[in-house]
Amino acid sequence: IRCIGVSNRDFVEGMSGGTWVDVVLEHGGCVTVMAQDKPTVDIELVTTTVSNMAEVRSYCYEASISDMASDSRCPTQGEAYLDKQSDTQYVCKRTLVDRGWGNGCGLFGKGSLVTCAKFTCSKKMTGKSIQPENLEYRIMLSVHGSQHSGMIVNDTGYETDENRAKVEVTPNSPRAEATLGGFGSLGLDCEPRTGLDFSDLYYLTMNNKHWLVHKEWFHDIPLPWHAGADTGTPHWNNKEALVEFKDAHAKRQTVVVLGSQEGAVHTALAGALEAEMDGAKGKLFSGHLKCRLKMDKLRLKGVSYSLCTAAFTFTKVPAETLHGTVTVEVQYAGTDGPCKIPVQMAVDMQTLTPVGRLITANPVITESTENSKMMLELDPPFGDSYIVIGVGDKKITHHWHRSGSTIGKAFEATVRGAKRMAVLGDTAWDFGSVGGVFNSLGKGIHQIFGAAFKSLFGGMSWFSQILIGTLLVWLGLNTKNGSISLTCLALGGVMIFLSTAVSA
């Protein structure tokens, strides 16, 4: 259960009878995928790494000078000259100064003066180019299975845990398959586009800190620079940016070097996208990844198990997540596992009318040892309800109150669905055939309105939902006002479609 501690969480529900669903994975976010007769899966884009970055340009932001020398000439005696002028490691300046009897010249006039100092770069920052084909995306998957609280967001041991898996995709191999043991396998067909235009970005490294910066900004930095990788004795261009020549006297000129420019660069980098280094690879934390999940090989585990009949206890007080759902960790005293956990939410304890829904599909106890633990997640209705676990006299209950409203949740879900469709863009549509167009249209309606429909009408039977949709269509056909007619027709059509397409 990876997503319960992530604030940016998206719930995606598969269409009834569908074998695939489109998701948008982004750094700092987590996606929970639910479908009829399929286990619930949490998917998170953990890291995006980039390798084989080529150094484009380096800037010196802290330097020192040494070996200063000057040469001067009297008027009419030609130009002052130093051998160091031809050495690229030196920074030199030529000027004219007033000369006369007082400073060793027989004539009054302008004399030539040249001053040089050896330039040494102490600290530099480097910009590297990123090729999209060198990106690698690491995705962690977790099935809502027989897990306890100690396994949440624990990325170790996934090789031997059938509840978890790690997959890596690249532009050259965008397809992967996550093996989930008894739950089958989940196929991923990803489109490795981060949403960032790397043709316009460089990877900047300064003092063990890293950013993504725009090329134009990078090339306009007014500091000494050299092109390409460091060859040991780089040729620094624009050395004068960190060196200041003071007022010249008759035979000498003082040279000083400016202080470190790291603070000024940090100020200019305010708002830039931060990154990290992992050995020789860069780690990015921006952008998104679009994936199509193929769920035809994914299956529920323990459908044929019998119900657990022994007593359950709450190991922890049920807690609310950031998303309005409830996490419950229970301990089973029996030894008759594997068995299914009898769990439901009810409005009252007399009729036990089921409300809400299970995020953890078909929760089971897989071990036959005593005191096995299991964590599950529920989506309670707004208002008061009861969490009921167990059967008969051994069942345990917990009162729950959820604040908020169904309308607010439906609106929030619609906005999130619209954002998801905007990110998917043209990849969500198939114009290759008439059937493809209608299929894409259905998927689009489901992406945007599916979660809201589930919130508003999830407790009704599909037949009642179709009746309401048919009534809206009838009202649309018999209303003389054009805008009201079109609105009723659209709402009725969407409702009829979703009542037959969205899983219960």
Rank of each mutant, 00 (worst) to 15 (best):
I1H: 00
I1Q: 05
R2W: 13
F11H: 05
V12W: 10
G14R: 00
M15S: 00
S16A: 11
G17S: 05
G17K: 06
V21P: 00
D22H: 06
V23M: 12
V24T: 03
V33A: 10
Q36F: 10
Q36E: 14
P39S: 13
I43F: 10
E44H: 03
E44F: 06
T47E: 01
T48E: 06
V50D: 05
M53W: 04
Y59T: 03
A63S: 13
D71W: 09
S72K: 05
T76K: 03
L82K: 08
T88Y: 14
V97M: 10
R99M: 11
N103W: 09
K110S: 04
L113T: 02
K118Y: 02
C121H: 05
K123V: 01
K124F: 01
K124E: 12
K124N: 11
M125Y: 07
S129I: 07
S129H: 01
N134F: 08
I139D: 06
M140T: 08
L141K: 07
S142A: 15
H144N: 10
G145I: 06
S146M: 13
Q147P: 15
M151E: 06
N154T: 12
D155C: 01
Y158N: 12
T160Q: 00
D161L: 15
R164N: 08
N172K: 05
P174F: 10
R175H: 10
A176W: 12
G182M: 09
G182V: 01
F183L: 09
L186F: 11
L186K: 05
L186N: 03
R193A: 03
S199G: 06
L201E: 00
M206V: 15
N207K: 12
H214R: 10
D220R: 03
I221P: 01
L223G: 05
L223H: 09
H226M: 04
T233E: 01
L242M: 14
F245Q: 07
D247I: 03
A248W: 08
R252L: 01
Q253E: 11
V256M: 02
V257I: 15
L258D: 10
G259R: 07
G259V: 00
Q261T: 08
E262M: 13
V265E: 12
V265Q: 13
T267D: 11
E274R: 02
G279I: 01
A280D: 05
K281L: 00
K281S: 14
G287I: 04
L289H: 05
D296E: 12
D296Q: 13
L298P: 09
R299C: 05
R299D: 05
G302K: 05
S304V: 12
L307F: 15
L307Y: 09
C308N: 08
T313S: 14
F314D: 01
T315C: 13
V317Y: 02
V317P: 15
P318A: 03
L322H: 04
H323T: 07
T327F: 11
T327G: 08
Q331C: 09
Y332S: 02
K340F: 05
M345Y: 04
M349P: 15
M349Y: 01
T353F: 15
L358S: 15
I359G: 03
T360F: 05
T369Q: 02
S372K: 05
M374V: 08
D379P: 03
P380R: 00
P381Q: 02
P381G: 01
S385F: 09
G390Y: 07
V391E: 07
I396L: 14
W400D: 11
H401Y: 13
G408N: 11
A413W: 07
K419A: 04
R420N: 10
T427V: 14
F431L: 14
N439T: 09
G442M: 13
I445Q: 10
I445Y: 10
I445D: 11
I448Y: 06
F453Q: 13
K454Q: 04
K454P: 09
S455L: 14
F457P: 12
I466H: 07
L467K: 04
G469Y: 03
L472D: 02
V473T: 07
V473I: 15
V473A: 12
L477Y: 02
L477I: 14
N481G: 11
I484T: 15
L486P: 09
A490G: 11
L491T: 12
G492A: 15
G492L: 00
L498C: 06
A504S: 13
